[in-house]
């Protein structure tokens, strides 16, 4: 069960990255708490997870400033999207 800081792909689009992180949350019973670019590896991100014991909704990742439904988890975070550094906001979608 990967908890803590886990490498996440930096070559995915915004929606694919959101899907990938959500998928990892679901299959590992974890919850994303932070997303950053990996300072030690080019074009790679680091996702921070904690253990969860209750159901959870999926994530949405949008470019900073773009509106999205749900609750913001992180805002104005620079991560790798499609291989390029991009400022993003991460949201937990409503039910």
């Amino acid at each position: 069960m990967p908890v803590g800081r886990v490498p996440a792909p930096g070559n995915l689009s915004l929606s694919d990255l959101a899907n990938e992180l959500s998928y990892q949350e679901q299959v590992n019973f974890t919850q994303l708490t932070a997303l950053t670019s990996d300072p030690t590896a080019a074009s790679q991100n680091l996702a921070t997870y904690i253990i969860r014991t209750t159901p959870i909704t999926n994530l949405a990742i949008v470019a900073t400033g773009t509106s999205s439904p749900g609750t913001a988890i992180t805002t104005n975070t620079t991560v790798y999207v499609s291989g390029a550094k991009t400022a993003v906001d991460v949201y937990r979608l409503p039910l």
Partner: peptide, 9 residues
């Protein structure tokens, strides 16, 4: 890095 980036979303 290669393994992580080879993950299919």
């Amino acid at each position: 890095t290669n393994t992580v980036n080879s993950l299919v979303p």
